[in-house]
Computed example of a mutant assay.
Amino acid sequence: MTHATTMFTPARALSALWWVPRGVIFGLMAFFIFGPLANLLFWTVAEKWYFPHSLPLQYGFSYWAQVFAPRGGAVESLTNSIIVAVLTVVVSLALAIPAGYALARLKLPLRGLILLAFLIPQAFPNLTVYVNVARIFYEIRLNGTIPGVVLVHVSHGLVYAVWIATAAFSAIDAELEQAARSMGAGPLRAFLDVTLPLAMPGLMASAIFVFLESLDEFTGSYFVGAPDVNMLPLLLYTAGAGDNYQIASITALLLLIPSIVFMLVVERFLKADVLSRVGH
């Protein structure tokens, strides 16, 4: 009895009570993170749900059939979104690989300002920028076309593409490329055989970031593409504005799934040594 009493000290009591605020904090974090996701999943299968009921009164998949019906627009919007995102990745990497290599290897004057210049599209309110872009694209007949939407998405995707590509090339020891050239390889062969394969994990992460940015882009898609180029974010906006929460939730889930999958891939490819060189 005495031994048990001595074991229960005020310090041990405070240590045990310390888990209470921790549990409350973690519980609130889990609620704010997973609560909206759970609500989203409920709405995707809710046939009937209204206040004050905390759970749907009837479950089903009739809204899924409505979304993927020929007149629902989801298949066309999903196809357009994927096409635009893939083309955005191709164009962004085609520009970012040489730019990132030059910024990483060459002693360019005002290198920091060049990197900062790629942030300019993010520095201004998107609404005012895209209104003027839409007016210019209308005059040159790019408004309402997939190439026009791709160009707008590239202007945002280059931020991720160039910065991560620069970091990926900076993380590679230049002596490896010099060793290949000393053995007779030309500049292009040394780049293709040595530098590019080593930078590929960072470039893959860059491509995924650009793909996700394009997939979720709404403002540029709306002002440049609508109503001729239907995209998933536009379908989500239309459903949400019309208070059709089931269709909006299903569309949001279609956007969420690739984002989660690709972010897991990014976590695998984008290593700490690459991240540490972003902006350097």
Rank of each mutant, 00 (worst) to 15 (best):
I114M: 05
A38Q: 08
V89H: 10
P10C: 11
W43K: 08
V131E: 06
A134H: 03
L28A: 13
G23T: 07
I33G: 01
S54K: 13
A104M: 02
I25V: 14
F137E: 02
I140P: 09
P21S: 00
L119W: 05
H3G: 08
I33F: 06
G23L: 12
L14P: 01
L110G: 08
R141F: 08
T5A: 13
V89D: 08
G100F: 11
P109V: 03
V45I: 15
W64K: 07
G73F: 05
G72I: 10
Y130A: 03
V45Y: 01
L28E: 06
L115A: 01
T79P: 01
S54D: 10
F42A: 05
G60D: 09
A96D: 11
E139M: 13
V75N: 09
A74L: 12
V24P: 00
I33Q: 03
A94I: 14
P70H: 09
Y63A: 14
Y101V: 11
W49C: 04
V20R: 02
Q66N: 15
L113T: 00
P125A: 05
W64Y: 14
Y63S: 14
A99C: 12
L95E: 09
P109Q: 01
V75R: 13
S54Y: 14
I25G: 00
T44Y: 04
F51V: 11
W64N: 08
I33V: 14
S15A: 13
W43M: 11
